[in-house]
Amino acid sequence: MTTNWIAIGHIDDIPLRGARCVKTPDGKIAVFRTAENEVFAIEDQCPHKGGPLSQGIVHGRAVTCPLHNFVISLESGRALGADEGEVRTIPVRNIDGQLSIAFEAAALVAAE
C-alpha cells in the first residue's frame, strides 16, 4: 500500500471560501479553500444524508451541508455542534499553489 501524490490543479482554481470536486472511481472528493488560503480535502458526501458538501457554504475551517445544514469540520471530517457523524479526510499537499492529494490505490480497492 503506497501513498501516491496525485496532482489535481492549482489553488487559484478554487474560489476563496469555496470548493471544487475531484472525481475518483470511489466517488467525489471535495477540495476546499478557506478564507485563510488553507486547503482541505474530504469525501464529498455528508454523513447525514449524503449531501454534496462541496456545494455548501465555507466558513472558518468548516462547511455547512446544503441539504440539511450539518456543519462538518474540514480538518477532522467530524460533524460539529449537536450532530453526529464523520467523513473521510484526504491529505492534501500544497507546493507553491500546486495541489496534490494522497491517493491510496489499495485503500480505494478495499473500499469498493
Binding site: I8, G9, D13, V22, K23, V31, F103
Partner: peptide, 17 residues
C-alpha cells in the same frame, strides 16, 4: 465556469492527468 466543472478526475484508467 469553475462551478460547473470538476477540478480534476483521478484514479481512472483514462485519468486526465
Amino acid at each position: 465556469k469553475h462551478e460547473f466543472k470538476p477540478m480534476a478526475a483521478v484514479g481512472f484508467h483514462q485519468a486526465a492527468e
